[in-house]
Simulated assay, not measured.
Amino acid sequence: MKSRILTTVLAVTLLAGCAGEAPPPAAVPPAPQAKPSAPPVTSTTPAACAEVVAQLSDRQRLAQLLVVGVDPGDPAAAVRLVRDEQVGGVFVGGNPTALLRDGALDRVQQAARFGVSVAVDEEGGRVQRIDQLDGSIPSARQMARTMSVAQVRALGGERGRQLRARGVTVDYAPSLDVSSQPDDGPIGDRSYSADPAVVRDYGIAFAEGLRDAGVTPVFKHFLGHGHAQGDSHSGGVTTPPLAELRAADLRPYEAVAGFAGGAVMVGHLTVPGLTDGQPASLSPAAYRLLRTDYHFTGPVLTDDLGAMKAITSTYRLPDAVLHALLAGADQALWSSGGDVGPVLDRLQQALASGELPAARVTDALSRVLRAKHSCG
C-alpha cells in the first residue's frame, strides 16, 4: 500500500481569478466561535481509502483538506511547503512562470507522500496563467460568440494538455456564471453568456476538454456570481433571492451532477433566503443545496479565503477555514500562502474537542484522496 501511495500522482482542487495576491489584514477581530453544524455525510469511505486514512495522523488528515497558494517564482518554497506540511493541494497564481517551467512541479510532486493537486485559474481572456508560455486563448464570452461547442471542447482539450505537460492537475474553470455585465465587470467576459443554456453547453464543453486531457475542471462560482451586487475581492457580495437564482444562475448546475471527474467551487456570495447573512462558502445551507437539490457528489472547494475582503474583513484565516469545513467544504483554499501552522493548530484543536466532527473530516478526506487517485 505504501508504494501505491508513493507512486500516485495528482488531481483535484481548486478562482483564483478570484484569488487575490495580497495577504489578509493584520488587525482583524477574532471571528465568533465556530459552531458544529455538521452537514449530511454524503460519501462513504471505500476500503482502499480507509486503509490510506488509517496511515495518516490527525494533522496529516487535516492538511489534506487545505489548498495553499505558492509563489510561482519560487519553486523551492513550494517544495518545502509540500514536504513539511503535506498539504492536499497548492495553487499557482500570479504572472511569474518559474514554477511552470523546467519540470519544477515534478519536484513538488516528489515531496508529497500522498500526491498533491496543483491548481491554476486558466479561464482564457483576462484570467490566464500559461499565456506567456503557450499562447493566449479567448475569454469565455468570446468563445461563445465566435466558436462552436465542439470547437470549445477541442480548445479545452488542447489547453488541458498544455497544462498537464507543465504539471498542473486542476483548473479553476469553467465559470458557470450567467451574466450580461460589461466585459470588464467583476464577472463580465468571464461568463459565456447571459443565457443559462449557452453557459451550460459551453461550460460543460470546456470542462470535458480539460477532463479528456487529464486535468480536473472546477465549476464556479456556486450559487452564481453573474447577477450579484459587489466584488468579493473588495467586500461583501449579495445575489438575488434564491428563487431568482434557481430560474437563471443555478440552471447550468443542473448538468454538473452528471459530470464525472469535476469539482465545484463555492463563492463568497450572500444569498437572501438561504445563507442567513453568511457568505455561501461558510454556509451549511449552501453546501446542502448543492448536495441535495443539485445532486453533486464530487469534491467541493471554497473560493479564496485568505485574500478576499468578503471573508478577511470578518474572519481570521484559521477561523474561516474551520467554518468552511464545518459548513461542508471538502477543501479550503487561500492564495496568500504563508505559515500553515496556525491553521492546522486551530483545526487540530477543533477536532480534539469535537467542535469539528471526525466524521466530517473523514467524509471530506475520502473525496479528496479519491479525486487525486490516492485510493479506491
Rank of each mutant, 00 (worst) to 15 (best):
A207I: 07
A207K: 03
A207D: 05
D212K: 08
T216C: 15
F219R: 02
K220Q: 12
H221I: 13
F222C: 12
F222K: 11
H225N: 13
H227P: 13
A228G: 09
A228C: 15
Q229P: 00
S232A: 10
S232R: 02
S232K: 06
G235F: 05
P241M: 02
A243N: 11
A243R: 14
A243L: 11
A247I: 01
A248Q: 14
D249C: 01
D249S: 14
R251Y: 00
Y253K: 04
E254T: 15
A255P: 08
A255C: 07
A257S: 15
F259D: 03
F259P: 02
G262K: 01
V264L: 05
V266N: 05
G267Q: 09
H268E: 12
H268R: 06
T270V: 15
T275D: 09
T275C: 08
G277D: 13
L282M: 09
P284W: 05
A285L: 06
A285V: 05
A285I: 07
L289Q: 14
L290K: 01
R291W: 13
D293I: 04
H295E: 14
F296R: 01
T297V: 09
G298M: 06
G298C: 06
V300Q: 04
L301A: 15
T302Y: 01
D304V: 10
L305E: 02
G306L: 08
A307P: 00
A310C: 02
I311L: 04
T314L: 09
L317P: 10
L317E: 10
L317Y: 11
P318H: 12
V321Y: 08
V321S: 01
L322M: 10
A327D: 12
A329P: 03
A329M: 04
S336W: 03
V340P: 01
V340D: 02
V343N: 07
L344E: 07
D345K: 13
D345N: 14
D345R: 13
